[in-house]
């Protein structure tokens, strides 16, 4: 662990704290309530967190995809760490997306679960897809574990848009899509706070990624020392 890495993660952590603090204050105290015709009132504020968490989970899976491809090109344990940690964090964010989405559904439509919301349905599939990553990972061993994990990170990431599209066409046929994203229709005062929330979540992801990478590196160094001691 180098000083530079510590400084980096400290700076990133501080930035994360500021951004998330600002977005919490902004979203709950400053941003206007959604009181227009058809507005959803207070509960609408969860939307900012819901959408930014969802986008950051996709970002995490994209990082895992890139790191997976990089691992296949140059099999360095560091890339495998990035894949593993990104998918773990991405999965946490995806589960939170489903939970916040469910809360929103309860508030907006009076039911905890709405299959006809394509985002909620897709994220449920995404959670399943990426949960399988850990099943595969725990059942493979050694260098093969890293290699298969990298391949699966690629397959799963490509499955995401395909799943989304499949859910979309299934619903457009069975019942027309009623609940479309209202993101584009946000007034500017809302949009600013949304962007800050999104940046905060992204910074949170990168901070956690860095922290865990440092931990993995330390663990591997420890392993190396143990090995050397064993050999005498």
């Amino acid at each position: 662990m180098t000083d530079a890495a510590v400084r980096r993660v400290t700076a990133l952590g501080a930035l994360t704290a500021v951004l998330i603090g600002a977005s919490v204050v902004g979203l709950f105290l400053v941003a206007p309530e959604d009181n227009g015709p058809g507005g959803e009132g207070q509960i609408q504020r969860i939307f900012y967190f819901h959408v930014s968490i969802a986008l950051v989970s996709l970002l995490a899976f994209a990082v895992a995809f890139i790191a997976g491809a990089a691992y296949l090109r140059r099999p360095r344990p560091w890339w495998d760490d990035v894949v593993l940690i990104s998918i773990r964090l991405g999965l946490v964010f995806a589960v939170l997306t489903v939970i916040t989405g469910s809360i929103w559904a309860k508030a907006a439509w009076g039911r905890w679960w709405i299959w006809s919301d394509p985002r909620l349905a897709t994220y449920t599939l995404v959670v399943l897809l990426y949960s399988a990553y850990f099943v595969l990972r725990s059942s493979a061993e050694g260098e093969r574990q890293a290699r298969f994990s990298a391949v699966y990170a690629i397959i799963a990431f490509i499955s995401v848009p395909i799943s989304f599209y499949a859910v979309r066409i299934a619903q457009s046929v069975v019942h027309p899509v009623v609940f479309t994203s209202k993101g584009a229709a946000m007034p500017n005062s809302m949009l600013i706070w949304f962007v800050i929330a999104l940046a905060g979540m992204a910074a949170l992801f990168f901070t956690l990624l860095q922290l865990e990478l440092i931990q993995h590196r330390a663990q591997r160094a420890l392993q190396e020392v143990k090995l050397r001691l064993e050999r005498g």
């Binding site: 599939l125 399988a132 099943v135 699966y152 499955s159």
Partner: peptide
């Protein structure tokens, strides 16, 4: 566990 989620589409 690996196959079915990918085959849902």
């Amino acid at each position: 566990v690996l196959l079915l989620p990918s085959l849902i589409p």
